[in-house]
Design a protein around this nucleic acid. Structure first.
Length: 311
DNA sequence: TGGATGACATTACCAAAGCC
DNA sequence: GGCTTTGGTAATGTCATCCA
């Protein structure tokens, strides 16, 4: 088993690694002049390189035998290591960075607003299980006000939710516009099929809130139209809000996608929101530093594809 | 003929000073 | 405090030449 040796950067810095290239050329050509031609430098420059190598390695390295520069025993041993170093370095330089999802082993940390977490994570899990079994997703609810800091601190790789542009360290793409619907338990609330504004405002409400404010995520939209709701329950998870509505005579105002997907499962009735509520669109945000990272690019494309399947 | 060496030119690096 | 400019120094390369 190879011993792992820590790199002494200071000593390597003081040793010009181009000397290894010069040494390799000398080994292959067995001639200072031909080695110089190979590296497209003049013969004296190569001679200087050989002189420096002789000083650093405290060995003649090459001795002239007739027309040939014959390597010493020390040079022959050194050559094996140099060959490996240069060939691996060249391979690392010329091999483009590619991301192979079926081979990759990686954990993606994605911050979601709770609607997107509920809608996307199950499909993301199914997709990864099928096409990229080594990739895992660590999902977490992220406050819109914190998402850019979490990206900066490398706590999350992507954010998907109701997020703004951030600054020039961040990138954002719009995924879809949001709309809202209401749902309630028809056994606890006797409401007409079409709700009017006064009836809606007069009810007790359950809302999703990832902030301290009980008015929840639609707080700004309500303020714009000068409406205040009587909020009985505000919780960060949609599931909590849906079960609250199931148990209590409350009405929930939630993203249309959530209502259409889960209201039926809970036996809840649905209704249009009788207010002109304009809420922020759903975006995906990431750090500029990971903009060209193939793995991050791949995950962004997968999220975009899964989201478009809902549209 | 081919490697080694001295003189000179160019380039890179570093530290100090000035500016915002 | 951070960035840019400037001048000094060291490293590196080329040319010319010497020597084995």
């Amino acid at each position: 088993m190879n011993e792992i040796v820590s790199i002494d950067h200071f000593n390597l810095w003081s040793f010009d690694l181009n000397l290894l290239v010069a040494f390799d050329a000398l080994m292959k050509e067995r001639s200072v002049t031909k080695a110089a031609v190979r590296l497209k430098i003049q013969q004296p420059a190569m001679s200087h390189n050989l002189g420096t190598l002789r000083t650093l390695l405290q060995d003649e390295l090459f001795v002239r035998v007739g027309q040939v520069m014959q390597p010493t025993h020390r040079a022959l041993r050194f050559a094996e290591a140099v060959e490996q170093i240069l060939s691996r370095t060249q391979q690392a330089i010329v091999t483009p960075a590619v991301f192979e999802p079926d081979q990759a082993e990686q954990i993606f940390r994605i911050g979601f607003s709770s609607e997107l977490e509920v809608l996307l994570v199950p499909r993301l899990a199914a997709m990864l299980n099928e096409t990229a079994p080594g990739i895992k997703v660590l999902a977490r609810a992220v406050d819109p006000e914190l998402v850019h800091k979490l990206l900066d601190d490398n706590v999350i790789d992507l954010g998907v939710g109701c997020y703004d542009d951030g600054n020039n360290r961040h990138r954002r793409t719009l995924l879809f516009e949001q709309s809202l619907m209401c749902c309630y338990n028809p056994e606890l609330l006797d409401l007409p099929e079409t709700l009017d504004r006064d009836s809606y405002v007069g009810l007790r409400h359950a809302l999703v809130s990832q902030k301290d404010a009980i008015e929840g995520c639609i707080d700004d939209a309500l303020k714009r139209i000068n409406v205040r709701l009587d909020v009985s329950v505000a919780a960060p998870e949609f599931l909590t809000v849906l079960t609250a509505v199931l148990e209590a005579p409350l009405i929930a105002t939630l993203p249309t996608r959530i209502v259409k997907r889960y209201a039926g499962l809970f036996g809840l009735a649905t209704a249009e929101v009788p207010l002109d509520l304009t809420v922020s669109p759903i975006s995906m945000v990431w750090s500029a530093a990971s903009d060209n990272d193939p793995a991050n690019q791949w995950m962004r494309s997968q999220v975009t594809r899964l989201v478009s399947a809902y549209s």
